[in-house]
Nucleic acid binder design. Structure first.
Lengths: 349, 349
DNA sequence: AACTTGCTTTGGAACGATCCAAATCTAGCG
DNA sequence: CGCTAGATTTGGATCGTTCCAAAGCAAGTT
C-alpha cells in the first residue's frame, strides 16, 4: 500500500497521486485550495502531501499558467542605507503578496545594470523596479527589458528620450519642495544670506533641489550670490574640504541648505576646523534623514524621505500595474518632510 | 518567407525555428553555444533571434534540465547597514556566476523566517544563505527547507540541536579573537581595570565576545570585578543610560571593551554627560566598524568585520558546495581586524 | 427505465526548453 | 558504386504543473 518513496528525485504531484489513489488533476486542485474537491479526498491528499514532504514547484506551475510570481528589484547601490531601507520596504510588500524579489545591484554602472537586467528578465519577473545607475539610458533599458514587462522607475530619471511606447510608472521624491521648505525655514529663522551647498551639477536630484532653493530665495526677495552655490562630490570628506569656498568672498552666508545629510555632516566638520560652531555661529540643513542626523552634535535639521515607506509604495504601485496592465501611466512625486532639529539656529545677533 | 510575428505571445524557440527553417533542437544548441552546429546555421539562427527579440526562458530550461540558476538569501534585518553590505557582497558573486539572488527578509522574527523560507524554497533555489533571526530553531529551519537544498548559515547559530543529517556549512565571525585583541590592546595601553560593556546574555555573539575579553584579562593576570560586566540592550540610547553602572562601585574601570559600535557610541554619550571625555579620561573600543566609527569624536577603535567581503565569501562557499554536494561540511570562522583609532587612549596618569 | 442535475474526478494535451537516439548529409576510400 | 567515418540536424519524449472537455456517480424526477 505504501508507494515507493522517491529516492534522489523530488516529490511531485504524480507521487502524491499514486500514494493516495487519485489523479494528478485532483492533487493539483487540492494544492490550489479549489472548492471543487470533496472534503474527505482533500483530507486524504493533504495527509499524503505532509507524509511525503512535498514541495510545490512554482516554476513549473508558472510555465503552464503563463504567470509570474516574482518581481525584479535593481538597485544602483545596495550598500547605501537609504536604498537598503528601500529594498527592505519593497520586499515586505512583495512578500506579503506571496511573491518573491529577485535582487540585482548595479553598483552605479549603467553597463552592469544592462547585464543585471538581462539576466533577471530571463527569469520572467512579472515586473521590475529600477533605481537607475547614474547615466543610465532610456533606450538601453528598453532594449534590455523589452516592452512586455512593466517597469517602475524610482528616484532618478533616465537620460535620453523615454520611448513613448514604453509606458513606465515613476516614483520620485519631491526634491524641489523639500529644498524650498528647508530654505524657507532658514529664512524664517532670520537668515538673509543663505547658501546652497554640495551636490553634483549633472544629477537630476541636485538640479531639483537647487531649483527649490532658488524659488524660496526669490519668494523672499533675497538675492543669490554666485559663490553661494558651491558644487562638490556628495561625500563627507569632500564637503569638509569645500567648506572654505563659502567664506572666500564677502559677504559670506550665515546659513546653508545642503544637498544631503552626508554633505551637511561634512560641512559641520569643515566649519569646526574654521572655528565656527555649527548650530550656533552657522545654520544648516541636510536631506535624507539618515540615522546619524538625529545623533550628530548639533542634531541635524533635515528632510525625511522615509525610504522604507517609499519601498512599500513602489512595490504597491507595481502590483497595481500588474493588476491593471492597461491603466494609465502613473507618475507619483512623494512629499518629503522637514524635521527641525538643532542645526538650523537663528543667525547670531 | 516571414513567419507571422507572435502577437500577445512571447517569442519561443519554436518561433525562431520556424522563422529560419531549422528544428527547435538546433535553435536550442545555438542558444547554449554548442560547437556541434554549423557556422552558417548558427549565424542564421542568431540573426533571427535578434530580429524577433527572443528572450530565453530560464525557468523552462531549469525544469527540463533539473537545475537551478538562483540562490536564496534570507537576512534577519536588511535595513541594518551591516547586512545590507553583506547582501551586496553576496549578490556580486552570485551575479558574476550568472545566477540570480532571491531575496527575503525576516525582520528578526523566526515565524516570518519560516514563511519566507517556505515561499523561497518553492522557487527551487540551488542553495540558501541564511542569517538567522534571533531565536530561530534548527529543526524548524530543516522542516522549511528540507534536507535536499544546501544551506549556509551566516553570523549566528540556530537554537536547538542541529539535525545531523542536515550538513550545513557555516560562516561566522571570530568574535572571541576580536574581543581578545581589543582587550589586549587596552591592556597594552596601560589599563588594568577594563570593563566589558553592553550586549545581551542570550546572544551567542555576546557570549563569545565576553569569553574573549575574559581570556585576555586572565592572560594578563588581571582580575574581573563583577560590576565590570554590564549588560544592556545593544542600542545607543540604552548604552548611554547604563553608563552609570560602571561607576557605581569602586574601583571603577578606566577602559571598556564594548559589545559593538552602537553601544560604544552610546557609552561615549553617557560619559560626556558625567563630565568624562572619552578618548582622554576613559578608553573604549567597539565592534563592527560601522561608517560612523571613523567619524565620531573621538574616532572609535573597533573591530572591522568587512561585511561585503563576508558576503562574497558566503556566496563563494555556497557555490563551492553546489559544485561538490558531497564534500565535507565546512565551518569557517572569519578573523576580524582591530582598527586602532583615537578612543583607545592610555589611562590618565 | 430513461433522464436530468449537481457534485467530483479524470486522462490527455499543453507551457518552453532540453535530451537522446536515430536520421541525414557530406566526403573519402577501395 | 557501395561503404564507412565524421559532421550536422532532427523528431519525439520529457521535466512538473495546470487546463479542458468529458466522464463517472449518486440521488431525484418524470
Amino acid at each position: 500500500m505504501d508507494s515507493n518513496p522517491p529516492l534522489g528525485r523530488k516529490v511531485t504531484v504524480r507521487d502524491i497521486a499514486a500514494g493516495c489513489g487519485v489523479s494528478r488533476a485532483t492533487v493539483s486542485l487540492v494544492l490550489r485550495g479549489s472548492p471543487l474537491v470533496n472534503k474527505d479526498t482533500r483530507a486524504r491528499v493533504e495527509e499524503e502531501l505532509r507524509k511525503q514532504g512535498y514541495v510545490y514547484n512554482r516554476a513549473a506551475a508558472n510555465l503552464r499558467r503563463r504567470t509570474s510570481s516574482s518581481i525584479a528589484l535593481v538597485i544602483n547601490e545596495l550598500a547605501n542605507p537609504f536604498f537598503a531601507e528601500f529594498a527592505a520596504g519593497v520586499d515586505d510588500v512583495i512578500g506579503e503578496a506571496g511573491m518573491v524579489t529577485l535582487l540585482g545591484s548595479s553598483s552605479e554602472s549603467p553597463k552592469r545594470e544592462q547585464a543585471v537586467l538581462g539576466s533577471l528578465i530571463e527569469h520572467g519577473p512579472g515586473g521590475i523596479i529600477l533605481s537607475p545607475a547614474e547615466g543610465s539610458d532610456a533606450s538601453q533599458v528598453l532594449a534590455a527589458v523589452g516592452a512586455r514587462t512593466p517597469l517602475l522607475l524610482f528616484n532618478r530619471e533616465l537620460t535620453g528620450e523615454q520611448p513613448e511606447y514604453a509606458h513606465w510608472d515613476t516614483l520620485a521624491m519631491d526634491n524641489q519642495q523639500g529644498a524650498r521648505e528647508a530654505t524657507a525655514h532658514l529664512i524664517a529663522q532670520g537668515h538673509r544670506r543663505v547658501a546652497f551647498f554640495g551636490g553634483h551639477r549633472d544629477s537630476s536630484s541636485c538640479r531639483q533641489r537647487r531649483a527649490g532653493y532658488r524659488e524660496a530665495m526669490q519668494a523672499a526677495d533675497l538675492p543669490v550670490a554666485a559663490h553661494w552655490e558651491v558644487e562638490c562630490l556628495p561625500t563627507r570628506l569632500e564637503a569638509a574640504h569645500c567648506a572654505q569656498a563659502l567664506f572666500d568672498v564677502e559677504p559670506a552666508p550665515t546659513a546653508a541648505v545642503c544637498y544631503n545629510d552626508a554633505v551637511a555632516l561634512g560641512l559641520m566638520h569643515g566649519l569646526l576646523e574654521r572655528g565656527l560652531a555649527p548650530g550656533r555661529d552657522f545654520a544648516l540643513t541636510g536631506f535624507d534623514d539618515i540615522a546619524e542626523a538625529a545623533l550628530a552634535t548639533p542634531s541635524l535639521t533635515t528632510l525625511a524621505a522615509a525610504p522604507r515607506a517609499r519601498g512599500r509604495q513602489a512595490a504597491q504601485m507595481l502590483l497595481q500595474r500588474l493588476r491593471e496592465p492597461d491603466a494609465e501611466t502613473r507618475r507619483i512625486v512623494a512629499p518629503v518632510q522637514l524635521v527641525i532639529r538643532a542645526s538650523s539656529c537663528p543667525p547670531t545677533a
